[in-house]
Design a protein around this nucleic acid. Structure first.
Lengths: 219, 219
DNA sequence: CTTGACATAGAACGTATGTTCCGATAGAAT
DNA sequence: ATTCTATCGGAACATACGTTCTATGTCAAG
């Protein structure tokens, strides 16, 4: 609720609580926190714990030893390693239609279909969505029917990115590596046996997302 | 260490401890356990807790309230849903050599390299290993350089499986869909534009694993 | 039957732990 | 300067909690 910044002490307390909890399987006591953060008085620890509760970082159970639990808010902020990301599966992608982008109106938990992957497979966890590939039209991108592509909504692309592009003139969606080539744009298939497409007028293409991951489940 | 079976009470205690811990973020007290499992005496709870420690299901810290922690042994036994699987990355795969199968001697935590994926991406978590694809020789399988294939060591294959086969006569490894075709075997590339290979003498092929998942990370 | 290992109850005990109260200090606002 | 608020320190307090001890019951081995 409140927006006050956390003091250095409070930050260290949160760090210690989390560290202690994962290491020991149970939360630290007030006195342990005090010792770790160099606070001599239990009342001060107690005081700051309550502040952290007000800020929404902790939950406490009264009169319960070690009755502290990190809030999801905090968990998410600190989940930097080896965790799981839910990515909404927003639709299917095929050659004859533009990529069905997820509406910004879509609530976070709106998509009932989603895939879960470990975070280390994708660099950034934000703005990701997944599409299932229909049809064999993307073979030149080395993507088969049934594959799942995880894309990032990203207006800016850079050389060498694999992107989903909508070719306005052909009315076709393809997955290609994209490169600036002078004033032109080169769309390079992943399959080394296929020829690149040169786009002279960049107006006719629309980059709809950057491919972050391709996933193919067999059997 | 000991192999004695757990009593009904002890089983319920473990269940309760785990349930309570995930729900509250900290372990239950002895008296809470007693109430939940219908044990009036704290000493009896204490007694059974120590038994569980002996059996290797729990760790306890003396003189620490709620100083209980579930052992990894127990954690693993109960991780049935939506969890993460570590798959050892045992090597690289390329056309000119057989698949480097992981030795059975390889210790569980031997491979320092591994990938983590969510369990729902692979049906069975056993006997899986991962290989990184080198070279462009697998394009007809719609697999690019750098892709990671998760395979299962599986001597028996059935129609339609994608398998890694070692072609003895060509001295070549490929990834193909495999089918029985009378007395022959048909190896079908994933790329619909490519032609199948008919193997008249099944002796010359060696199925080295079943492809369970293909993973391609971009950017 | 006796013995001993095992499991259970209940009570008493010591202390680890959360809570509360009072006072001190520092800084900002008036 | 005065007041108010936020933060901190120390001590006393109440109790939640782990530990320990004694007693009881069960059951298989001797």
């Amino acid at each position: 609720m409140a927006k006050r910044a956390l003091t250095e002490r409070q930050r260290r307390m949160l760090d210690y609580i989390q560290d202690f909890t994962v290491k020991n399987g149970y939360p630290p006591s007030i006195r342990q926190i005090g010792k770790a953060v160099d606070i001599s008085s239990t009342s001060v620890v107690n005081y700051n714990l309550n502040r952290l509760v007000e800020e929404g970082y902790l939950d406490r159970d009264q009169n319960v030893s070690r009755g502290i639990r990190l809030t999801e808010k905090l968990m998410k902020a600190t989940e930097t390693l080896g965790d799981v990301v839910r990515i909404p599966l927003v639709g299917r992608i095929f050659a004859s239609e533009p990529v069905p982008l997820p509406g910004t109106d879509s609530p976070i938990y709106g998509a009932d279909e989603a895939i879960e992957i470990t975070r280390d497979l994708v660099t950034s966890g934000e703005d990701l969505f997944a599409l299932e590939v229909k049809g064999d039209s993307m073979v030149d991108a080395m993507v088969s029917e049934g594959d799942i592509v995880v894309m990032k909504r990203e207006p800016n692309w850079s050389n060498g990115d694999m992107v989903a592009v909508w070719l306005k003139d052909r009315e076709e969606t393809t997955l290609k590596y994209i490169y600036h080539e002078g004033n032109q744009v080169r769309l390079q298939p992943a399959n080394p046996n296929m020829e690149a497409i040169m786009i002279e007028n960049p107006e006719i293409i629309e980059v709809q997302g950057k491919v972050m991951l391709v996933l193919r489940q067999l059997a």
